[in-house]
């Protein structure tokens, strides 16, 4: 009896916390599937339909793709993908050098590197704009990807994790004649999968969510990313809340779809370590 009560309480608690987390997006989802006039009619005064997609009307979804939202999605996807792949290589290599190798000026360089993450693109948007304009990269994918590639936070993260791996492994491999790239790729990368996934997620989310920099670094409709397109929705189609919600739901579900397989990967890690143990 006590056991059943505690199970009941536990589910109640989880459900309460969970619904707070999910409520805004669920409401946006329900509202995106409604005719425009119905959305605020349902919330004030409150009626249970506010949280149900009823009467069902999927037109908002068709409408946003007619207005070119698909291309913004493609842009965001491409920019994020390029940033993650190139970013992992650039920052991973730097993190490895800081964690494992010894060379003159290491501490100064590392301090300088970490310092740069205190000034992200938002803080230095104006001078950064000047630099990118002089490179002729305004309104290009390079202008969206390259300025954020090397990142103090990511390098710091890699260094933290690489430093936890016993140096004896690298020293032994070195004595066996392995090159540093081999050591990085064959020893450090396999042992640091959680760090690599964390870093990849960090880069992906920062890039997928970036708003201020894409807003000022791109001008044409052709280069517009999702977050900027959404802001445009609000301004151009002021009252079309169902379309804004539809676009919000799509651009929120995509990162989750990328995260879910990785969640499975986390669980695999646990299984792996318990088998080895």
């Amino acid at each position: 009896m006590i056991h059943r009560l505690s199970t009941f309480l536990r589910h109640g608690g989880y459900l309460l916390v969970g619904s707070i987390f999910v409520l805004p997006l669920w409401w946006a989802f329900s509202s995106s599937l409604k005719p425009l006039a119905q959305i605020f009619h349902d919330t004030s005064p409150f009626n249970a339909h506010a949280l149900l997609p009823f009467p069902l009307d999927p037109r908002a979804y068709l409408e946003i793709f007619r207005k070119g939202f698909g291309h913004a999605l493609w842009n965001s996807f491409l920019v994020s993908f390029l940033s993650v792949t190139a970013g992992l290589v650039v920052n991973g290599c730097a993190g490895f050098a800081f964690a494992v190798l010894s060379f003159p000026g290491k501490n100064v360089l590392f301090a300088l590197t970490v310092l740069t993450f205190l000034a992200p693109a938002e803080a230095i948007a104006v001078p950064l704009y000047t630099v990118v304009r002089n490179l002729g990269w305004l309104d290009t994918y390079a202008g969206l990807v390259v300025p954020g590639l090397a990142n103090g936070i990511t390098i710091f993260l890699f260094r933290q994790f690489f430093a936890q791996i016993p140096r004896e492994l690298a020293e032994a491999a070195r004595l066996d004649g392995a090159g540093w790239m081999t050591i990085l790729w064959r020893i450090y990368v396999p042992l640091c999968k959680p760090a690599i996934i964390s870093a990849g997620l960090l880069i992906f989310f920062f890039q997928w969510e970036a708003f201020l920099w894409p807003l000022i670094a791109t001008r044409s409709e052709r280069m517009r990313v999702v977050q900027v397109a959404l802001a445009g929705f609000e301004q151009q189609h002021q009252t079309l809340w169902n379309e804004l919600f539809a676009a919000s739901v799509i651009s929120s579900v995509i990162p989750l779809l990328i995260l879910l397989p990785l969640q499975r990967y986390y669980l695999h890690l646990v299984v792996d370590s318990s088998i080895k143990g």
């Binding site: 987390f21 997006l25 969510e209 708003f211 919000s248 929120s252 989750l256 969640q263």
Partner: peptide
Amino acid sequence: LLFVPIGVSLPI
């Protein structure tokens, strides 16, 4: 449920 807000960008 708890991970849902991750997908929602700050502007959204």
